[in-house]
Design a protein around this nucleic acid. Sequence first.
RNA 1: GGAGGGGUGGCUGAGCGGCUUAAAGCACUGGUCUUGAAAACCAGCGAGCCUUCACGGGCUCCGCGGGUUCGAAUCCCGCCCCCUCCGCCA
Length: 425
Amino acid sequence: MLDPRTLAERREEIVESCRRRGVEADIDGAIAARERVAAAQTQLGRLNQRRNEHQAAGKRKLEPAQREAHVAEGRRLKQEAGRLEHALAEAEIELDAKLATIPNLVHPDAPVGGEADFRELRRVGTIPRFDFEPLDHLALGERLDLFDFEAGAKVAAPKFYYLKNAAVLLELALQRFALDPLADEGFTPFLTPDLARRAIVDGFAFSPRGPETQIYSVADTDLDLIGTAEITLGGLYADAILDEADLPLKLAGISHCYRTEAGSAGRESKGLYRVHQFTKVEMFVFCRPEESEAMHELLLSIEERIYQALEIPYRVVEVATGDLGAPAYRKFDIEAWMPGRGDGGEYGEVTSTSNCTDFQARRLKTRFRRAGSKRNELAHTLNGTAIAVPRTLIALLGNHQRADGSVDVPKALRPYLGLDRIEPR
RNA sequence: GGAGGGGUGGCUGAGCGGCUUAAAGCACUGGUCUUGAAAACCAGCGAGCCUUCACGGGCUCCGCGGGUUCGAAUCCCGCCCCCUCCGCCA
């Protein structure tokens, strides 16, 4: 969330940011609610001060009549406090509700517009030309006996799947492969829980709960299945005051990711592209505000390095303001070339990295203190995909397929996979 | 899952209705002393918020949420977490 105290003075900036995002937000309502909260806090503080004085006065011995009057006055003050507390609580609920509608500010350079208005920054690698009709990942998977979607649907539900044979090895190898460049950059690896408390999940301001939610909840608990290890990595330092010397704090997390994909039926959803469960290696950074843009570049460069090593052609796009999630200030996606996609191949999103500035940290209460300062400051948070397994499989199989239906394994991956080529059975 | 015990400031730990402005120790940060360090001594040392141009003033927080009371760290209720033992189990 944004800082409620700066809403009024930054009003124009916030209005402009919402306009660029195409988001309706009740900014003036939030400002008004914030004023009511501050007023109620001031009133309650003054009353509590009087109560404290009154209570201190009651600590000595009193004549029965005096005691009786003292008790009566105490009771009156208590009732008054009850009223003020109630008013404060109502104003706070109102403020929270209004704040929840206001997304983060947007980066001044972010392209303005919707999904189609992304800015292509560069293309890297050469799109393969096949002297045969290339197959899509489903057909390749069939030839190589890699997936079982029918079993996934039968045993679990549609958009679940089984990985088989070399796909199993690929899943494991890709995870291990992604960890090395991260270790080189000083990331601490984690295998995180796949579930998290709702209070933590809410700190990340994902999609709304309710019919539009992307998040699975576990019945009769306050747990959700995580949609990304961003939640469990970021949650690690909820409510913490970090040591400035530890910043930037770089975390890498492997987890399963669960997404309901509500409302996305039929949309680019063939095969492994959009599924309810997948494995992802995620990067997460806590840093000082002044270094978050550089960290964003770092995360993007790591993602590029990984796709280059996998010899997968890709392009880098900057996501347009209207397509940013609420916490994101700026976002870059890598779209890998997927030969089997669309008509003769298309780019498809395989990674995404966002700079969330202090938007998540404010709710998570992740702060740090600068050397020599007495004030705690909110950290900035960033996240980025190192490897999302299924979509990487789509690009990997598609780009490295051969006429005989086998798939070459890129050199960099061979030590991790233990195979040079995946052959039909 | 069952039975006990427990959650107090960075850590240890006292307090168990008004003498708490949460003791004391450790750690940490300054200072004195010292060639330097250690020791000793002195002082400081949590978070969030309201208010103020500022200096400052004030409020809240003893796992979390309710309740009793004029007054709660202290009593009552619910929940969460940790420890020990038992059961179950990859």
